[in-house]
Design a protein around this nucleic acid. Sequence first.
DNA 1: TGTTAGCACTCCTTGAAATCGAGTGCTAAC
DNA 2: GTTAGCACTCGATTTCAAGGAGTGCTAACA
Lengths: 346, 346
Amino acid sequence: MEEHGLGERKLKILHGIIKTYLETGEPVGSRTISKYTDLNLSSATIRNEMADLEELGYIIQPHTSAGRIPSDKGYRLYVDMLIVEKEQELNEKQEQMLEKADKMEQLLKQAAKVLASSTNYATMVSTPVNNSNKIKFIQLSMVDEEQVIAVIVLGGNVIKNKIINLDEPLSNENLLKLNMLLNTTLNGMPIEEINLGLIARLKEQAGIHSRVVGNVLDAVADTIQIDEDMQIYTSGATNIFKYPELSDKQSAQDIISAFEEKQQLTELVTQTLAQEENTGIQVYIGDETPVQNMKDCSVVTATYELGDGMKGTIGIIGPKRMDYEHVLRSMKRLQNELDVMFHKKE
Amino acid sequence: MEEHGLGERKLKILHGIIKTYLETGEPVGSRTISKYTDLNLSSATIRNEMADLEELGYIIQPHTSAGRIPSDKGYRLYVDMLIVEKEQELNEKQEQMLEKADKMEQLLKQAAKVLASSTNYATMVSTPVNNSNKIKFIQLSMVDEEQVIAVIVLGGNVIKNKIINLDEPLSNENLLKLNMLLNTTLNGMPIEEINLGLIARLKEQAGIHSRVVGNVLDAVADTIQIDEDMQIYTSGATNIFKYPELSDKQSAQDIISAFEEKQQLTELVTQTLAQEENTGIQVYIGDETPVQNMKDCSVVTATYELGDGMKGTIGIIGPKRMDYEHVLRSMKRLQNELDVMFHKKE
DNA sequence: TGTTAGCACTCCTTGAAATCGAGTGCTAAC
DNA sequence: GTTAGCACTCGATTTCAAGGAGTGCTAACA
């Protein structure tokens, strides 16, 4: 994690300050710490240590005659210690808090809701996306004289469709040929290998019918390529109003529009998925966050997996004085639960 | 609309008060009206009239020494007048503000966004739902030994799928039979006619294979029935922060969670669609709204149609001092635009 | 040398009092 | 019926004083 070079005592004091501040949201003074910790030191001594901690950048004094609040650096140290500590106690007993829901979509929505209400922060859950997925099934069928429907199933049973409007008739015979061609060529193929070159070759092989066939192939390629199908479900955005430091108009507006417009959350997910961490859990404090709108918050993300290279992200957004302990625990639990659920379902 | 029995002059004064209040959001005094209107009356006279209007319940005095603000009743009168007035000028020239987007989903999202940014209110757009839709195409295909995919296309090109896990193998022959059966029976059938009785009859006809076949049929029926597929897209929820009267924590929280949880919006849509209005545009002021969380707002909804009985809803949520004129105009325009777009696309 | 008591000082918070001003209702005159 | 004039009301804003939490520093203590 990091060299901090703080003595035991300074560490304890810092810990005390952060812990207290997490609860109260008010700057914490020397007297409080003096009584709170088991150090048996007078407030004066604490004051001296605090002065040091401030100089080292771990805490901040909002104004001369106020107590201290943690800086981002302080939070960071605290969280890092916490993560180390928590990694020990793996495989914690996990209750089943999620009812079974037969649709994944429902399940994830519910997960977000449960997480939000159990933490009192804003949450998001993304549907899993495939960085490297394979085509499992592909088929064209006539709907009527003017329309063909393409159905494609990817690994993880992701289904994609497209209705293709024909501008000239396509014989049953040709449809059959096309289906054969598509199946022999594309079946089992990872989608990232499907590119313009391949499509061109396919068109060539399809031979003389190239105009209609070409259109159909283009449509198919298009359908596969577009992977905007990551959905993000959010819940508890209004929880931020529980924290005065995020409740002023500007902050609230920033955070909530990030939640509504989803664009920024998508980036957050992408970035999270890209980063390969051992535990799969990441904590962004203040400016560390990839989402500019949330620079006054802390963001905790976790990755869950489905196999087949499908991965999704869970996220919690709250004030910097977040109950990191609880959040990390909840995260880990949900992460496990999702893993279990999805592997059961396969 | 309603008997109000107000004289020309009182009406003009009320109109002036509302109009001014819409712009400023501040209680409006007699002097302002005296100067604003073309009545050429002194503030004293206006004051007398105002006292009358207050007694009649059209305006309210927040406290003794303040100007007047419109009551819900006042707004109602204003809006009703406006609607009558606007119905005259149908078929107004409409600009194309929406770029073509080939996916309906994209189109609707964009519509919400455009509407939000052009009005500065919060907006929602629902995807169309079918009260009475017909099956246009239905097909089962083998994905592999253990899975069958059902693809169903409804009128309006709504596509539904379901992957069905087989617990015992299904021969190609039987699959073929099933497909034939499904097509002869269900094709062209309105979905509301598909019920348990029909399914039972189908199962009977399918004969001896009843176990596998039964499961498949159940799954198909299930897929069709579930019409939770109405999506609601929202935009500009944070616009409410532009209006101080909706910016306090409680109101903001109420409104925004209604927007996030969608549940209440769904009810709003359902209710709107149920109500058959000539123009398709409805205005709910304050307590009139079906959504409890929005009782301090005005809600304007409009219905758009796709033919085939597919209908969707557009909604605008803003403060009671909404620019009704502009909103009604925008609504009507968007309504038309959507109609045009969708009918073009068929 | 590290710890602590004591004290002057800072500066935010709270609340009361003073002031301001927009707007009213009423009366009397036109 | 309309209007000018005036006393009055009452929320909003500003001002000011007190209160108090917390600090930094110094000097004494173990």
